[in-house]
Design a protein around this nucleic acid. Structure first.
Lengths: 191, 191
DNA sequence: TTTACAAAACTAATGATATTAGTTATTATG
DNA sequence: CATAATAACTAATATCATTAGTTTTGTAAA
């Protein structure tokens, strides 16, 4: 016994991601993770600080990946096309990585500086997409909040089986975003 | 010892609501709840089936109360005014009862029939508010999904401290809903 | 090649939690 | 007043996370 399994921090995080995506964040326990890695639970502490730390790492990784997906989606697109693509990329990420998405949205540690920065990154990214609209800074920030609310709300409800009617879900998202964007065109900023 | 505390199911649920609203759903443990009620942990099992059951009850109670708040908010209002009021009632409920709101949105038991019904109730309520718009049934259902996504997303992000810019949050919500509603006015259903 | 050190795994122990079984005490009812 | 229902209790078990201290293993230096 005591065969080395060649674990390292990245290894463990990878396994945690898989486990979260299949079992949900609730189901990600150190006991189960250790079993998956053919190791006793305390051995994990050579690679992570503990469960809260692991969850924070999960959030960071998730935020990094979802931002990458949004950046990728927007290549070669501008204005409404770009925003629509970003919205779908966001929701698709949540579909493909439910565990990571939970980790993002549950946000174990509000004060983690890396998480704060990654969050701000996303906001700045959205602001840049909004540049061509020529909004004031304040207006743009409100729009960013609105956009985040829409896509997060949609992804979150969908994840929880909140949409039970037999109705195309992609179509619902498309209409939501397009209706909002249409409203934006006919806007005089505040009412 | 063994003084009766006069507990019953409603009592225990009330205490659980308070604890969830102050400590968060995570912080609601049977051990802490029992301590708050001056009772040993196993005594709680005379009034609840267990922790999962308690959480389900919390969800049911939350859904009931948030629907009541929305119904109340809409009295004497119609169309855009009504929808705006409902949106604000929803978000305000989440602000006043963060624990109950968490319980609603985490949805411990997808399959609980009472929860299903309460969820459908909310959808039907929204559909009735949409009646004056004269939408087709399909269009209306998409709008309901959109509306729920917006208000849930907003409430959820706000709850998680997702809005860190120093910007009026009520104003962000107002603009989000109004922009969407404006888009709805200029719509030809599908694109 | 051998030795020595760092790191990875282990065992053992502790403390929190939920849950179940079985017991005692209290209250209400016949 | 007696009895039955029930609310509370104690004791026990199982699952977690976590810490301390030990053993093993791999690697790098002598």
């Amino acid at each position: 016994m005591a065969q080395r399994q060649g674990l390292d921090a990245e290894n463990v995080l990878q396994a945690a991601v898989e486990m979260a995506d299949t079992q949900g964040v609730e189901g990600l326990t150190l006991a189960a993770l250790a079993a998956k890695l053919n190791v006793k639970t305390p051995s994990l502490y050579n690679h992570i600080k503990g469960l809260p730390d692991l969850r924070t790492q999960l959030s960071r990784r998730g935020l990094m990946l979802i931002k990458a997906a949004m950046v990728d989606a927007v290549i070669g697109k501008a204005k409404d096309d770009a925003l629509l693509a970003v919205g779908f990329a966001y929701v698709d990420f949540a579909r493909k990585h439910p565990g990571l998405y939970e980790a993002i949205s549950i946000l174990p540690d509000y004060e983690d500086p890396e998480l704060k920065e990654a969050g701000n990154d996303v906001v700045f990214f959205l602001l840049r997409i909004l540049e061509p609209y020529g909004l004031s800074e304040e207006d743009a920030l409100h729009v960013v909040r609105g956009f985040r609310s829409m896509v997060h709300g949609f992804a979150s409800l969908e994840h929880r089986n909140g949409f039970r009617m037999g109705l195309e879900r992609d179509e619902s998202l498309r209409r939501l975003l397009q209706t909002y964007l249409r409203g934006l065109r006919t806007t005089e900023s505040a009412t």
